[in-house]
Computed example of a mutant assay.
Amino acid sequence: MIDNIKFKISTIDKLRFEESIEKNELISLRSTFDRQTGEANDYPKVGRLQNMEIRITKKAAIVKGSIHKYYNLMKGLGNQNYNDFSFKQFKLAIDDLCEKLQLDKKETKITNLEFGFNITVSKNPKLLLDEHILMFDLKDHNRKHNYKGNGSYKEFERTDYKIKIYDKGKQYSILDRNLLRVELKIIASRYLNRLGIINLNQLGNYAFKSLFEAFLTHLNKLTIVDSLKAPEDIRIDQRILFDYCINPNHWSRIGTQEKKETLRELKKLIKKYHLNKTHCVLRDDIITKYLFLMDIKS
């Protein structure tokens, strides 16, 4: 669920945190040098604990990295984040990190985090991204590329968040199953604040429930169809409607009221001809995975 996370030490706790990090034998801080005098600059000070980066400037102190990878490194499971990462494991990882960095959870403001799921799917993730997962909120992806040479990737970017979908298995050369990553990346603290998440101390059951509800809301805004071809027995006007509606350029050319009416007709069409099985299966699998990782009995 939660993977990358970034948090800022509060101003009133920054000095104490900095002093504790400098005395911490687990962390080696590095600073830059003045090329003319050869003297070390006071700031920035940069260090790492496992994969987590610590950066201290004159005015701020930040910790960031994949808490999922941190847990796996802590448990000797490697520098990876493709396995399941439960709520209980998240809490163990955060508690361990806070203990080793002497963090005060109430004095850490969360500014960014990623919340998502690694899901085993029946189809090749590249096929899903190319021919089934088409749009988000009726808009085209902002980025689509071969993820660092290791699999297909789509990103839908908005002001406060991004929806990221990519081939997790290909990223890690996993050959025995099709592993898809679907992720909500929150890049603005105001979004988190609306969910009631401000500091590390608030990342409990309620916060995970709020994050999951937000995630499902966004998942439902994805346009996912079973086929790019309209059914053979469909009326000609419905075929035209379908062909237009699976093209994101069509939605950018019509007004708000027409968009509402067209979307209503498209949904009726998809339901009538059962073109939403891929979407329903993905949604059901994600809900099942969430319940499992939260240890909630359905």
Results as ranks from 00 to 15, higher is better:
residue 1 M to K: 11
residue 2 I to V: 13
residue 4 N to M: 11
residue 6 K to N: 04
residue 7 F to W: 09
residue 8 K to I: 15
residue 8 K to F: 05
residue 9 I to C: 00
residue 10 S to H: 08
residue 11 T to V: 07
residue 12 I to L: 12
residue 19 E to R: 11
residue 22 E to W: 11
residue 28 S to V: 13
residue 29 L to E: 08
residue 32 T to Y: 15
residue 35 R to Y: 11
residue 36 Q to C: 06
residue 38 G to M: 06
residue 46 V to Y: 02
residue 51 N to Y: 02
residue 56 I to C: 07
residue 56 I to K: 00
residue 58 K to N: 12
residue 62 I to D: 03
residue 65 G to S: 05
residue 67 I to Y: 08
residue 72 N to E: 04
residue 73 L to V: 09
residue 74 M to Y: 10
residue 81 N to G: 01
residue 84 D to R: 01
residue 92 L to K: 07
residue 93 A to Q: 01
residue 97 L to F: 05
residue 97 L to D: 03
residue 98 C to Q: 11
residue 99 E to S: 13
residue 100 K to Q: 10
residue 102 Q to A: 01
residue 103 L to H: 01
residue 104 D to F: 09
residue 110 I to D: 10
residue 111 T to A: 03
residue 117 F to R: 03
residue 124 N to F: 01
residue 124 N to D: 15
residue 126 K to Q: 13
residue 126 K to S: 10
residue 132 H to V: 09
residue 136 F to A: 01
residue 137 D to I: 03
residue 139 K to W: 10
residue 139 K to E: 15
residue 142 N to F: 12
residue 146 N to I: 06
residue 152 S to L: 12
residue 161 Y to R: 00
residue 161 Y to N: 12
residue 162 K to L: 10
residue 165 I to L: 12
residue 166 Y to K: 12
residue 168 K to Y: 07
residue 171 Q to N: 06
residue 174 I to Y: 05
residue 177 R to S: 07
residue 178 N to M: 06
residue 179 L to A: 07
residue 179 L to Q: 03
residue 184 L to R: 06
residue 186 I to E: 00
residue 195 L to P: 02
residue 211 L to D: 02
residue 215 F to P: 00
residue 219 L to R: 03
residue 220 N to E: 14
residue 222 L to E: 02
residue 224 I to E: 01
residue 225 V to S: 09
residue 231 P to H: 09
residue 234 I to E: 01
residue 234 I to A: 04
residue 234 I to D: 12
residue 234 I to N: 11
residue 235 R to F: 02
residue 237 D to P: 00
residue 245 C to L: 11
residue 250 H to R: 09
residue 253 R to I: 04
residue 274 H to K: 15
residue 279 H to R: 12
residue 279 H to G: 05
residue 283 R to W: 08
residue 284 D to M: 04
residue 285 D to L: 11
residue 292 F to E: 15
residue 294 M to A: 10
residue 297 K to M: 07
